[in-house]
Amino acid sequence: MAWRKPLGRILSVLLPPAFWLGVWQLGACLVELSVRGRGNELLLPYPSTVWNALLRLAGEGPFWGAVLASLGRILAGMAAGTLAGGALAALTAFSRLWDRLLSPAIRVIRATPVASFILLVLLWTDRNAVPAIISGLMVLPVVWANLSRGIRETDGRLLELARAYRFSPWKTLRLIYLPSLRPYFLSAVTTAMGLAWKSGAAAEVLCLPRSAIGTQIYNSKLYLEIPDLFAWTAAVVVLSLLLERVLRQLLSSGDRRWTP
């Protein structure tokens, strides 16, 4: 029965989303019942309504503009936050003084409510720049913490080998630190990707840049277009998951060659 295997695989992939769509549908039915047919759109629209809203929005020009603008902002923030987090991890790992100075500051950044940052950065800079800065600020401590741990946990025996075999600092970095840090970096950027989208979208809702998914979310709320709110949110979720997947593929493609 050759058809059984692929069928089983398709079923196992489709089952979880189907289940949750069913739960959503049921919830929307219950809401409609409890409001006695006066329209459940305001509280919890049906999945099909949201799907139609998404299709309608996707057919309009501003949708793709907003998606691309948000994507660009979040990727820019992500890249800047990752670079800064990596540089700071190197600095705090190899210098006692910098560690004493910077580590508490980075922990403060991590503990500060994102809303406070958004409002502060909005006061200091242009509204269009806020989402990228916020994404970067949220990504930085995650990358820093992961890479710091990775540097600390790099095999001391390999580092001793590098010393005994007269590796230059650059060679030690290239042959020992970077490959050892790879799994830490992968886990950092995949966690950071989700954070960047969430914080970036929140910043967009509060700062309302000209073209942005967050601005559209705010408008949907303002005009009580709740299916649109769901549709924009779905767009963010899909983009975030998609990018996480792409990153994971890119970063782990080299590993399969040498792992047993």
Binding site: R157, L158, L161, I176
Partner: peptide, 21 residues
């Protein structure tokens, strides 16, 4: 040139690369 009691090979380098390193 010191040979450690444990091999200390680099898992991500091939045999050839261990020598060119």
């Amino acid at each position: 040139a010191f040979l450690f009691q444990d091999n200390r090979l680099l898992p991500w380098r091939t045999v050839e690369q261990h020598l060119t390193d």
